[in-house]
Computed example of a mutant assay.
Amino acid sequence: MPKFDEFDLAILAALQDNARATNVEIADKVNLSPSPCLRRIRLLEEAGIVKGYRADLDRQAVGLELTVFVHFKVIRHNRENADEFQQALVEIPEVVSCYMISGDLDFLAEVVVENLAAYERLLTEKLLVLPQVTDIRSNFAIRNVKTGGKLKLPPMKS
């Protein structure tokens, strides 16, 4: 884990609160002058700690009414097979997140689509035809309780 000091952690927290804040606003919030604050932000970006900035959209407001958690079991557990499967999921825009998991199934993907008919098309035309898949199980979200939560940053180590 990279070594962060109190300023780095404060900057990361401030960016999670409002990534659109100006450098001056962030510097003021973390008690740094603007130049060192901007230098630290750039270093956090270059190190890949800050991976990017994006808008958090209201899914229903943009017509994406259905969230589905899709569990996959894949055939032949080897690196090549896993890499091919992962790349296939990365290329499907409806898959908004995906994890390799432990347990009875191998992968868990979060899929966001317009409605049940759109999910049926995605399932039959893209997911079920993936050669690595031996089993798919779908769980439909009833209500969104929390998404896009801020990360609880670990305390500084002395």
Rank of each mutant, 00 (worst) to 15 (best):
E45H: 07
L89I: 01
K157N: 12
R20T: 11
E120W: 01
I101L: 09
P34M: 05
I142D: 14
P2Q: 15
L43A: 15
I49M: 05
A14V: 02
L105K: 11
I142P: 08
N78P: 03
V129L: 14
L153G: 08
G148I: 03
F107Q: 00
P155F: 00
L9M: 06
H77R: 03
I11W: 00
E6Y: 10
V90N: 10
D56T: 02
L151K: 08
P93M: 06
D58C: 06
I142Q: 14
F7K: 15
A55L: 13
L108T: 09
D106F: 08
P36F: 08
S35L: 11
H71R: 05
D58W: 01
R20I: 00
I11E: 04
A13R: 14
R79V: 08
F85H: 11
R76N: 14
S158V: 10
P155D: 09
K152W: 04
V113C: 05
P34T: 10
E114D: 12
T124N: 13
V74F: 09
Q132H: 04
C37P: 01
D104P: 12
A82P: 01
E91V: 00
P155T: 09
S33N: 09
I101E: 07
N78S: 06
L57C: 02
V113R: 04
E91P: 00
I136R: 06
L9F: 02
V68D: 03
L153T: 13
I11Q: 07
T134V: 15
E6Q: 13
A141Q: 09
F72L: 06
I41L: 05
L153C: 07
V50G: 06
L64Y: 12
V68E: 03
E110G: 03
L57G: 01
V129C: 14
D106H: 11
P93D: 05
I142T: 14
A141E: 05
L66N: 03
C98A: 12
K150T: 05
E25V: 07
V62I: 15
A141L: 08
I49P: 01
S97A: 14
L57P: 03
N144G: 13
Y53N: 06
V133H: 12
V112N: 07
K146D: 08
S102L: 13
H77K: 05
L116H: 13
V95T: 03
T22E: 12
C98I: 13
D83G: 01
Q87G: 13
E110F: 00
D8A: 07
R137W: 02
E91R: 08
N139R: 05
E114V: 09
S138F: 03
Q16I: 02
V24N: 14
C98L: 07
S102P: 05
A61T: 00
R143I: 13
M156F: 02
L43K: 09
K152Q: 12
T22N: 08
S33P: 00
L116C: 06
A141V: 14
K29P: 02
F4W: 12
N31Y: 04
P34G: 05
L44M: 09
V24D: 08
L57M: 11
F140D: 02
Q60D: 10
E114M: 11
V113F: 02
K3F: 13
